[in-house]
Design a protein around this nucleic acid. Structure first.
Lengths: 188, 188
DNA sequence: GAATTTATATATTGATTTGATATATGAAAG
DNA sequence: CTTTCATATATCAAATCAATATATAAATTC
């Protein structure tokens, strides 16, 4: 699934400008499970226009640059439905946080604790944020995805809460075992 | 965190060739939370060599091309430790499966059920796979990451198991409501 | 036993994508 | 009154991906 298809999907929800499409990935419902940047969205919209899958309406705005509102054509709709029938690629997770934690023994106790708490804070925040969302008028597919996101954030948050003391202690122990303090007796 | 830093991290675990580094992301422990391809790994190793962060030993092998085994220098070790002290970027998830499910109402009931079951199967498999891993000799940081992965896979698998019938039914209902069957009576 | 696939191993290439930035303006904040 | 933020378009260098080329041996399938 490339950015062209993603744009078709977003436009399924209603006409939008490139800027507004980007916002869907930055703050909107897609933020939790997909991302796309301007550098891929604008060329994608150009290609979709060439191929007749979207149309444009330029809205003049005083001062601000013209707003180019894209909307799906019938062909665009058909193309997106066809894309949904294809088998999706496997989920991909890219977590620098887990890379760091994987190498916990190479970090100072202080840095590790700070990292851990920041990570936990991040997921706790996501839970709070998602629990505050209004469910009225959201169709079942979107509600399902939202529920899956909430489940994910809750599971991560709980795991982080449950294991903090144990992990920090175990890592400290492992580090002590790996680099034993030379005691005066060891000099013999 | 770029691929250069990632390679330093993998080399922390012992000397390795580009091919072996790639395998860490494909099948190894990193497969669950990071990815990097040959096209980024080989140039990264070249740069690291130039910068003196790794060294190479070319092992001649009969028939097969020489195996270039890279290993960390002291500078490489120091550089990676410094990288671990930096604040990691936020976790990123890229799920085409959830994009599809977000637009569940645009799919046929058949395609949706097939997608759902394939998705569930995928996560159930991941749980089984991770539960079969041997924990002996794995340091605490890595065990923590493994536990987090298992928690994630279990949460996703359970959510998918718990909501199947409900979601499929709700999506079908929503579709019926959106495109009402024209009954003979409606012709009046 | 021949043919194909899989695994080892390096490396490149075209296409895509990112992250940052440039441009322009108005409003809000400090 | 200066800076940051929001709207809005767009581009560009650098990074990255997915696929493929090359070479060989082992394993598997037909």
């Amino acid at each position: 699934m490339d950015v062209k298809t993603l744009c078709l999907g977003v436009l399924t929800l209603g006409p939008a400008s490139g800027y507004e499409i980007r916002k869907q990935f930055e703050e909107g419902p897609f933020a939790h499970f997909y991302d796309a940047s301007y550098g891929s969205i604008y060329p994608a919209l150009g290609r979709l226009l060439e191929d007749g899958l979207v149309s444009v309406t330029e809205l003049a705005q005083d001062g601000k640059p013209d707003k180019k509102v894209y909307r799906l054509t019938d062909q665009g709709h058909a193309r997106f439905s066809a894309a949904l029938a294809e088998t999706p690629a496997a989920d991909k997770i890219r977590s620098e946080n887990l890379v760091h934690l994987f190498f916990a023994e190479l970090m100072t106790a202080e840095d590790l604790a700070k990292l851990y708490d920041g990570y936990h804070h991040y997921y706790r925040n996501m839970v709070t944020q998602m629990e505050g969302l209004d469910p009225t008028g959201i169709p079942p597919g979107r509600m399902f995805v939202r529920g899956m996101g909430l489940t994910f954030y809750k599971a991560m948050s709980e795991y982080l809460a449950d294991n903090r003391e144990r992990v920090l202690a175990e890592v400290a122990d492992a580090k002590r075992a790996a680099t034993p303090q030379p005691t005066p007796e060891a000099a013999e």
